[in-house]
Design a protein around this nucleic acid. Sequence first.
DNA 1: TGAGAATCGTTATTTCTTTCACGACTATAT
DNA 2: ATATAGTCGTGAAAGAAATAACGATTCTCA
Lengths: 235, 235
Amino acid sequence: MSLVRDISPRTIERLSLYRRLLLPRHEGEGSYIFSHDLAELAGVTATQVRRDFMQLGCMGVPRTGYRIGDLLSGISNILDAPSGQRAALVGVGHLGAALLNHFSGRWRWLHIHAAFDTDPAKTGGTIHGCQCFPLTDLSHLVRERNIELGIITVPKEHAQEVADLLITSGVRGLLNFAPLRLRHPATIYVENVDLTSAFETVAYFSRSRSSSALISEPHRGFPSLDDRKLSGGCF
Amino acid sequence: MSLVRDISPRTIERLSLYRRLLLPRHEGEGSYIFSHDLAELAGVTATQVRRDFMQLGCMGVPRTGYRIGDLLSGISNILDAPSGQRAALVGVGHLGAALLNHFSGRWRWLHIHAAFDTDPAKTGGTIHGCQCFPLTDLSHLVRERNIELGIITVPKEHAQEVADLLITSGVRGLLNFAPLRLRHPATIYVENVDLTSAFETVAYFSRSRSSSALISEPHRGFPSLDDRKLSGGCF
DNA sequence: TGAGAATCGTTATTTCTTTCACGACTATAT
DNA sequence: ATATAGTCGTGAAAGAAATAACGATTCTCA
């Protein structure tokens, strides 16, 4: 399968982004893209794009670019499990339901297979195309249906117990939206989506770089220069 | 105001997290916490915690710890704008509504002041306590009400135009939930919350570190060791 | 066919972030 | 008092990640 090892989280995230940006440009086998064009779409440098693709083993051709079909299959080779992966979402509140809607039927190889909640008003039916079960069924269903991932969208008071339940039921990775950090064994991968931190970070940097320091500062969130000029004048 | 400069995005995110973890423990002026206790709550190392607080100018006392009140005011001093900050959310779909609910009335100094949508069915009223206006009012209201931040939860087809509109209307920072990267001038800070990348990242690492490589690997998402033992046995 | 310019692949370098390591300090017990 | 052990602050080192730089390759056009 995937012979390439040791790809950093940052690179994985970019690969996911590259794929989304490349898909609409994949028209037939004759479609190519230059590193600097993709770089501009992705908001990164051309060097970074080339380096990322180097790790995939995807080779480009000078003055021609990368064949988009190659890139897409190279990325899929890394990101997608051959037999697909299933996730369980726990906590069908506003955020949980929004995620069900957001991810519903979007990919074949990775999808939310079932949702869980303690509220009887929410269970028993289908929400945004996803079956919703009582939490008491979780352990059984995770095992039986081979669910590998858990998405936690419950209030923070219950996040840890839900995480424990998911882990003991056999999931190997968690996507946590609760505003805290989960305790977990080293065998489980946990990705935190911290909406509060994101909001406060924007607030901070939006004023810290108010009028001064417009030069340099290749901080995350601000554009950086490269081989060639990017984003020259947005308007 | 904040005399401290050049705090990295990573540190800012942790400060936001520390504050949330500290607030419930702040009972009176006699409450203290050790760096390693907060580290465990935050899922980082004790050294990291100490270093972060060093940047705030918050001093602890050996064998006593840090006074929680000092930490909270130190963090607030960095994160919170003295006169508060307002955000506008654009795109009251499932995700937008969930965020309105999530952030509604949570903080004094930072809040979503108004929501915008093109759908007349959604505008004119209040959603989760937030007034919702037609998109055509955005430019006017952003200016008049001094809104500094934009939250973009529109479909990707409209994300760039909404960003442009927000920027020309005067916001200085964007929190982008659309699954692409926005073009923007260097004076604007943009934080991307990429739900798809997050989901695919969990999927990737949940299987890449399946049964092997349980040792070391202090990668993001996996726990790391430190001065003292953390998370010794989750169950 | 050869000159010129654009693009790639990759090593070296720089920059950023985290961890290590250890002296200094403080509470506690004897 | 003194010894002991636990915790802090921080310079130094290590580790990750991004960028720069440049030879090699390929297309275009005279």
